[in-house]
Design a protein around this nucleic acid. Structure first.
Lengths: 345, 345
DNA sequence: TTGAAAGCGCTAACAA
DNA sequence: TTGTTAGCGCTTTCAA
């Protein structure tokens, strides 16, 4: 026989009924069986090289032990560590992640969400949340299990895990102020995304905490978390506010774009303008200059998100308490892109 | 009714038998139906928000429209573009990729392979091939559909798509020779992997083609494609052959490690020693100095691999011809890490 | 402690 | 052109 062995084959080889084989093979129910029977079934299974048919199991139980993971773009170095972190908890617990890249496209996201639902995923980990997110609202109404990561919606619909953005921005501003800067700009990410909104808000509060005049500290929005958007926004910023001596970027990609704009305009970093990034993604320490940035524990973020989701899936009472929020601590990594402001005559 | 609608629901709503609904819903067989019936079924499906149950379909057809993708580590910036390339082909054709990271661990790879097989994947795209690969040999004997990407086995068991490594190394050596180098080293990747073996061989032939004395051109092996391994191997190299003026690295990560070793030893790149990388992974243009490297079209590699696999899956005759090999063209990207050799007194 | 039987949702061979 | 029927491999209720 060359087809894959089924449970019926195992049962036959062990001389038991297939229901018995099923029970023996499931740790959950093997307790109610004669240990000797269990042993025989297990031996037969091993000998035949039996692996359960996930489709059959899923059809029967209407659970797939699969979770859908929605991210903007795998190619953004932020996400691979997130995904690996999730897998570190999913795999040992028998779950598999099904990845989908939305490319920040709402229609594509909807399509992928449908496709994943069709594949019977048990729940979702979503890294693409917008503050206003109709699809997630619908998912909430439909009672679908979701955990948000990195970004959240304006209504607290689902549990969410992210880095402590406000503290991170505070650290960055503290550092710059400590260096002597008083004209600090923020090139923010999109305000339609929670990190963009909270980091911008945190920027303003940090300024206030230091008693710095907000008038000399402009905030400009990059329309996306990308190098190109950062470059354009920085261009605009320097045009309008040439006096600034430091920039807190919405994330590392925006910081990189800003760096390019500086270079294009003949400004040196950090001698003329300091830059601080956010995330501490891979290779920022190789940049020229090595980027001072706020480190976010992405792997841990993935781990926490997966835990939250599995807890939700495997709990019997799908409680209606206010969704948990997990904020992981961040810290400032000082490299070489921030220095004291230039001496102006 | 709050459960997801099934085909029976659609059939009932459209007033037809569920077999008819099935036919109407499948483009393949909807042709044999009264167009008006098809229209009614489609309308009912849409109205109910019907999505097919993949588990049921998979159980019935014993095909899952899922392919397993084995990669060493998603966190290596090489792989995300590869994966995106695959998905660009897979998704429009109704397939989904199931990713698995092996971390170069043979046992883990075997476990994941089993797990994916249990999930009824229709075939595999494998980026973890070693020259000697028992698991792949077994898969071949079992008649499992596999496409290799980036790396191949010593026996041509499966179709394979990769960059044109030999030409790439030739380009790198040509460039260095053109710059005036005659003492060029190669910090190779592991020789147990096909790129390590072919790039090292290509290095030797390129030297020969230029009539350069191989005695002054050492090759040292890094035990893995990583920054750390590259750094250690470079340390060893410089200890043994301090006279070399240029290094062709097995890949960009090894090049980066080499760069660090140079820096640690007070050598400047490119003034004292030139370095050329391989792959042109993201951000190497931000390194200090920006890395001259061989560009490999990773996205295209992923596209080709997925195409090859789907062709194999959807062809009726699973032919026994010699597996196809696709070699995608590469080119040298000149940045700033390679320059003329220093003038030695 | 084990067996019998039903059925998850779908497709495809066969019949009408 | 459409309906009938069987069954993919598994889990689980009920009965023994």
């Amino acid at each position: 026989m060359s087809r894959r062995p089924t449970m019926a084959d195992v049962a036959r080889a062990a001389g038991v009924h297939k229901a018995t084989a099923s029970r023996a093979l499931s740790p959950h129910s093997s307790g109610q069986l004669n240990p000797e029977t269990v042993r025989r079934v297990l031996a037969a299974a091993k000998q035949l090289g039996y692996t359960p048919n996930a489709a059959a199991r899923s059809l029967r139980t209407s659970r797939s032990r699969t979770v859908g993971v929605l991210i903007p773009d795998l190619t953004n170095p932020l996400f691979p560590p997130l995904v690996r972190g999730m897998e570190d908890v999913l795999l040992p617990r028998g779950y598999t992640a099904l990845l989908a890249n939305t490319d920040n496209d709402e229609a594509q996201e909807r399509t992928l969400f449908q496709a994943l639902t069709g594949r019977q995923v048990d729940g979702f980990i979503v890294a693409t949340a917008r503050l206003d997110h109709p699809l997630l609202r619908e998912a909430h109404e439909a009672g679908i299990a979701v955990v948000l990561i990195n970004r959240t919606t304006d209504q607290p619909l689902f549990p969410c895990v992210s880095g402590d953005d406000a503290t991170g921005i505070g650290l960055a501003v503290d550092h710059l102020v400590g260096l002597g800067h008083t004209a600090i700009a923020h090139v923010s990410g999109p305000r339609t995304l929670s990190p963009g909104a909270v980091r911008a808000r945190a920027f303003r509060s940090a300024l206030a905490a230091h008693g710095i005049n907000p008038g000399s500290c402009p905030v400009v929005d990059a329309p996306s978390y990308s190098e190109a958007a950062g470059a354009t926004a920085a261009e605009e910023l320097l045009e309008r506010s040439p006096a600034i001596t430091a920039i807190v970027a919405g994330n590392d990609l925006i910081a990189l774009g800003t760096l390019h704009t500086l270079r294009r305009r003949g400004l040196r970093c950090p001698e003329d303008v300091s830059i601080i990034g956010f995330n501490d993604m891979r290779f920022v320490d190789e940049f020229q200059p090595p980027l001072t940035t706020v480190h976010v524990p992405h792997h841990e973020l993935g781990v926490e998100a997966a835990r939250l989701l599995l807890d939700q899936l495997e709990r019997v009472d799908r409680g209606t308490a206010v969704p948990k929020r997990v904020l992981l601590p961040v810290d400032l990594v000082i490299r070489a892109s921030a220095a004291p402001p230039p001496h102006r005559p």
